[in-house]
Amino acid sequence: MITIKLKYQVEKDDFMKAGQASSNLKKVLKQLGINSKIVRKIAIATYEAEMNIIIHSEGGSIDASIDPEKVKIIVRDRGPGIKDIELAMKAGYSTASQKVRELGFGAGMGLPNIKRCCDEFAIRSSFGEYTELSITIYHSGNNTEEGGE
């Protein structure tokens, strides 16, 4: 497998297209024959991050790099940033609006859930400027389907 790079733009408040980037990435990973459990973890982490861009930022991008060993995803947004990262990482803490909660999100599980799904996780933010997540999930040696569908 050569290294495959994918880039997705995600717009602020675009709930109609929400999940399209994660859905596309998931389909590519499945086509590459990566283990379905690992694909699911990557899909969950990316979907949570995609929703975060839509809900909390002024827009941003998702860059995925798939090589024979790992999938690395960089999620970077423009926007308010996170004032207190430690607090944002706490399960149940959320600044989401009522509208977002009515859509089924904003339980305050996003960032902790992303961290749980990946092997390496880093978050950087400058308050008032941006938030950047670096998510790495290793798949090497797990490229056979198990469990099936």
Binding site: G19, S22, K26, R40, A43, I44, Y47, G104, F105, E149
Partner: peptide
């Protein structure tokens, strides 16, 4: 009880049939 496309997107991510 949440009836919108996000429910289906979530199901897709989780491999829910």
């Amino acid at each position: 009880g949440l009836v919108n496309p996000h429910t289906v997107r979530t199901a897709e991510m989780l491999d829910i049939s």
